[in-house]
């Protein structure tokens, strides 16, 4: 899987980075961190719409924002031919333009998630300037059933179930596109599969799950779950930018591993067990009543079987070591 290529890279050189989807939660944290990190060169952020307020305070010599929609070919072309991109010597693209709000679904969202990834990746290959493409994926791509091992390594089966939720299908499809470009000469494609990111103001599936008024879990099951802190996510992406490890897939997990009920208890929520059919209906009702934004259908299997990531590769090749515990609301 890992393929080291002879690309003209000098080890000590600073990488100049393009972040797509910089207005997302991870994008915002990443931009703020990279723009203040002396080990990283220039950072270019892009997202549709005007510059988000939280990015206004960043040093303009380190960070520039360009509004661009990756679904509009002309805007992408302008971005790739613009002086910020060419003169800025952007050599690394971090693709975060991915809809991570479970409420948003349907063909338009699919187009952004999958076609957007494909278009951007092909544009990077055509341009010839980009040396590394980093794709943020997640652990929902793995298939979970009674036969899957407790610790999933990067070779574990992906969830190709045609009836899986769009959230999962889009991620698997986008990841397959990235994998199919891994043998591109001169450009590394790095896929980072993150465990669920949990923390204040982070958003995402499991955050809304643990913040629901009542946390419902499957009756008779209480699997182990791993949660990762945003700081560790940023650190893993930084390592992926800096380490020249060739194309490859890396599992990134956090320190915190416990059962669903333990996490719910830590968050000060009552955990109520229901049979599976009841869970579907209760989740639907709670969504309709705006009591939660969580979609049970995304995590159906995760509510029953443990989904822990084997991070041996990330540890050995990237030197990644999780260091932060997740914070729940007080």
């Amino acid at each position: 899987m890992a393929r080291t290529r002879n690309t003209a890279k000098s080890p000590g050189r600073k990488h100049n980075v393009l972040i797509t989807g910089v207005s997302s939660t991870v994008g915002r944290h990443l931009a703020m961190h990279l723009a203040s990190d002396p080990r990283i060169g220039f950072v270019l952020g892009t997202a549709p719409g005007p510059r988000p307020r939280f990015l206004a305070a960043l040093d303009p010599s380190r960070f520039r924002y360009i509004p661009s929609d990756i679904l509009r070919p002309r805007q992408v072309r302008d971005l790739f031919h613009g002086p910020e991109f060419t003169d800025g010597g952007i050599d690394t693209v971090i693709h975060l333009a991915f809809v991570s709000h479970p409420n948003l679904r349907g063909p338009k969202i699919h187009r952004l998630n999958v076609q957007g990834t494909k278009g951007l990746l092909d544009r990077c290959i055509e341009g010839g300037q980009v040396r590394k493409f980093i794709f943020k994926s997640s652990d929902v791509v793995y298939r979970l059933d009674p036969t899957t091992p407790v610790y999933l390594n990067e070779n574990a089966d992906l969830n190709h179930d045609p009836e899986a939720d769009q959230w999962i299908q889009d991620r698997v499809a986008a990841e397959m596109i990235c994998r199919s470009r891994m043998d591109t000469a001169g450009m590394d494609v790095v896929i980072l599969r993150f465990a669920s990111i949990v923390g204040r103001n982070v958003g995402g599936q499991l955050n809304s799950y643990f913040d629901s008024g009542l946390v419902f879990k499957a009756l008779g099951f209480d699997p182990l779950l791993n949660l990762v802190h945003m700081k560790d996510v940023i650190e893993a992406i930084r390592l992926a930018i800096q380490k020249d490890a060739g194309s490859g897939i890396f599992n990134i997990a956090g320190i915190d591993t416990a059962t669903i009920s333990s996490f719910a208890e830590l968050n000060g929520r009552r955990c109520v067990a229901l049979p599976e059919t009841g869970l579907m209906m209760m989740n639907w009702a709670m969504r309709k009543l705006r009591m939660t934004e969580y979609y049970y259908s995304v995590d159906r299997d995760r509510m029953r079987y443990p989904c822990l990531l084997d991070t041996t590769r990330a540890r050995e090749i990237l030197g990644y070591q999780p260091s932060r515990c997740i914070e729940f609301r007080e």
């Binding site: 407790v150 610790y151 182990l224 915190d256 591993t257 416990a258 822990l308």
Partner: peptide, 10 residues
């Protein structure tokens, strides 16, 4: 112990 009273295999 992984920190919450569970070992890696639950």
């Amino acid at each position: 112990d992984l920190g919450y009273g569970y070992d890696p295999f639950g």
